[in-house]
């Protein structure tokens, strides 16, 4: 084979290989986004009464295994000397009991409901090796329980402790789904529905009639751990500096 033909073949095969690789990798590189965040969840810590009915309702609705929680409520007790005590007895499924040294020693106290933040850029989805957890086109972060291998990498990745793997039960990753099975039927998530004090709200961001719409437009809102860059979609009203 003469030199020109050889060079031509070399160049053209390299070009073909390169383009082939680009086409194959395109979906990964392009980040073509049909990703939208249609829903928002609001937690108003100034309204939460710590009854724990949300945690209990979630357990019943989603058959959450013992010892694990899709949502829970934390109680912060900030003492006069600055010490901060946080507790969440059984995730607040049975509510809270008065703290033994309640009166006098506590400067400030409040409840903070927690749940999966259904982040817009979730790093739990980023680290799933098999594509079992993902973001739906409406912005819900779900787990495909038929495909998950139970490696627990997503559990390690979640900065909020929202995920778990029940090793003696299903063996797959699980977490709050914002009651996807209820929202798709026009209902509210179980925790939002049951909350007696409007501390938990959920709705479409673009719907002027949704309960979240006015709050999103008017109130000063915070998110948990903004430094992670995960862009959580659960917005807090009245998030104290002590809350992680």
């Amino acid at each position: 084979m003469n030199q020109d033909r050889r060079t031509f073949l070399k160049k053209s095969s390299l070009t073909l290989a390169g383009s082939g690789l680009y086409i194959a990798l395109f979906p990964m590189i392009s980040g073509a986004s049909a990703k939208q965040q249609l829903y928002a969840y609001i937690v108003d810590t100034e309204k939460c009464i710590g009854c724990g009915k949300c945690a209990a309702a979630c357990k019943k609705e989603n058959k959450v295994p013992d010892g694990y929680y899709r949502t829970w409520v934390e109680r912060y007790s900030i003492m006069k000397d600055g010490e901060v005590i946080v507790d969440s007895p059984k995730g607040a499924v049975d509510g809270f009991k008065p703290v033994k040294m309640e009166k006098g020693k506590i400067e400030k106290s409040f409840f903070v409901p927690k749940l999966c933040n259904h982040c817009a850029s979730p790093n739990c989805v980023q680290v799933c090796p098999v594509g079992a957890t993902y973001v739906t086109k409406e912005g819900f972060v779900l787990v495909d329980e038929k495909h998950c291998v139970g490696c627990s990498y997503c559990v390690q990745a979640c900065p909020y402790g929202a995920r778990y793997v029940d090793h003696f039960g299903s063996g797959v990753a699980d977490k709050c789904t914002w009651c996807y099975h209820r929202v798709t039927k026009g209902l509210q998530p179980a925790c939002v529905n049951i909350c007696p004090s409007d501390a938990r709200l959920f709705g479409r961001i673009d719907d002027p009639k949704s309960s979240v719409h006015s709050i999103l437009k008017e109130k000063r809102l915070q998110i948990l751990k903004p430094e992670t860059g995960n862009n959580p979609m659960v917005f807090y009203v009245g998030l104290d500096k002590e809350v992680r």
Binding site: M28, K60, Y134
Partner: peptide, 30 residues
């Protein structure tokens, strides 16, 4: 049904999973 829905980073999953999750019956009825 395994494919890329949305971006590869966040939307790579088994497509049927969405419908399966949505079809779970609701307990509380409001």
């Amino acid at each position: 049904s395994f494919g890329i829905y949305g971006s590869y980073s966040y939307g790579f999953h088994r497509g049927d999973s969405d419908a399966e999750q949505a079809s779970i019956p609701a307990l509380y009825q409001e």
